[in-house]
Design a binder for these strands. Sequence first.
RNA 1: AGGGGUGUAGCCAAGCGGUAAGGCACCGGAUUUUGAUUCCGGCAUCCCCAGGUUCGAAUCCUGGCACCCCUGCCA
Length: 559
Amino acid sequence: MSNEPSTTPTANFLRTIVSDDLQNGKHQTVVTRFPPEPNGYLHIGHAKSICLNFGLARDFGGQCHLRFDDTNPVKEEAAYIASIKESVAWLGFEWGEHLYHASEYFEQLYQWAEYLILQGKAYVDELTPEQMKEYRGTLTEAGKESPFRARTVEENLEQFRRMRAGEFPDGAKVLRAKIDMASPNMNLRDPVMYRILHTIHPHVGYKWCIYPMYDFTHGQSDAIEGITHSICTLEFESHRPLYDWFLENLPVPAKPRQYEFARLNLSYTVMSKRKLQELVQTGLVNGWDDPRMPTIMGLKRRGFTPAAIRNFCDRIGVGRSDAWIGYELLEESVREDLNGKAQRAMAVLNPVRLIINNYPEDKVEEFEVANHPSKPEMGRRKLPFSREILIDADDFMESPPKGFHRLTVGSEVKLKYSYVVKCTAVVKDEDGRIVELHADYDPGSTNGPMTSDGRKIKGVIHWLSAPHTATVEVRLFDRLFSDANPDRGGADYRQFLNPDSLQTLPQCRVESSLLDAVPGQSYQFERLGYFCADEKDSKQGKPVFNRVVTLRDTWGGKN
RNA sequence: AGGGGUGUAGCCAAGCGGUAAGGCACCGGAUUUUGAUUCCGGCAUCCCCAGGUUCGAAUCCUGGCACCCCUGCCA
């Protein structure tokens, strides 16, 4: 599946179950499935499920199917199918031959529905939705039986066949399983199996006008495909008795078992399809692939790597208790991956001119520097140096706090890979804004963060030779919400939107070689963080950089 | 007495009767031309609470408490 060895996932209850089932011979091989409904785009929560299902299959030598749970054509679209496939593949997983659609089982499901009718275990009901709700009872009171529940097998069969034939309008009738209107489990109070929907289906077109419900589809689809472990999230737990009921009452070829795990909750974001959709539709973000979105497409565009996401999923573990994962863990996962892979480069986000007074006007020299501090195989490049340097505004302060070891008037700092300079003056305009800085350089200080007379310099800053840079747009992203749990108690999550989640800097300066950055390519801008050339807005020779994540900053928590 | 779940450090999470893994965060210290990385070291006398069984309990029993899910012709 994924060609890179991921870290060994820690034990979890599902791995234990699969391992036991294999060892005691209950199953010869493990077959799992990832069953998205094609009604939206995948997000980081789905990634957890994908890594779990495909990971289990990979680690135990089995297989994982990609199955579209396309039973509700009014919400589904073909475009989502393509996007979902792309996301799963991008994450590094392969389903090979095993691509399925629940809609391909519709004929078999229909036959099984007739089978249940023949057994006296299903009936066509004509209660209106309102009546059905009323008849269902409540959590603490039993429901009552529909008057149509007593229809004969013949009548039910005839009615159901006429439903399929298209003789009734949407909503006129439904097929229900005859189970128990007094069950304490609401899902067992004669659940609907089929409803009438005269609409086109994204995969099978106009072939059907009645569609099976999830509960009447999922378990049987698992059985048809020989799924051994059907893994879903906790909210389906109370559906398990129904999942089992259909499998027990139908002549299915296998008896898969359903297991549930806790879905992922990530701090500082929202995960529900409805809310993500709302963010997109109301223009609060710029599309599904907005780099601030927790969608797979958004993360990809932001510059997250598949390996980082897989690593994140391995680290969070799998359990049955409601888990709230801190956003920092996601950030830490990309840093870990990019630290080893990203070429280093110099970039100045908020440029301030620094004039080296004692450096010759027309002189330009070059320093050869490593592209990666611990990977010589990543090569070296040349960095030009001249009298006029650009440094980041954050690296100069007139009245610095204690412990600041960057630049201030009178202090010395090491220009990384170059000279130690001593700031001699700050020039401001009439509004008090800094126009430029002046400094003297120490000609004998190119060897390490040391002055020519051997004094160690603590502060090392990044810089660029002003005449040798390129100007690019850089986008700084921060968490989309300012509250760790935007979903908290009934409040409108939108009130917690972080107004500073996107900051666009149109005039950043970078090494001119970065103009050739390939969209999707990541760099570490020294001392600033990891940046990725935006896939969508970068043009040939004119890249736009997205900040994936900052470097860890134990000094100031600066951005 | 609706039903079904969950409760181990700030956040995840192993553990399945023999005396609390690991990761993230955090705190020290070393290395470092990124206040990065890397590296060492620290970080639960205690497992929601109260009783009980046992030589021995996070693990077994009893009783509480807290939180989550279930009343779509959604998945």
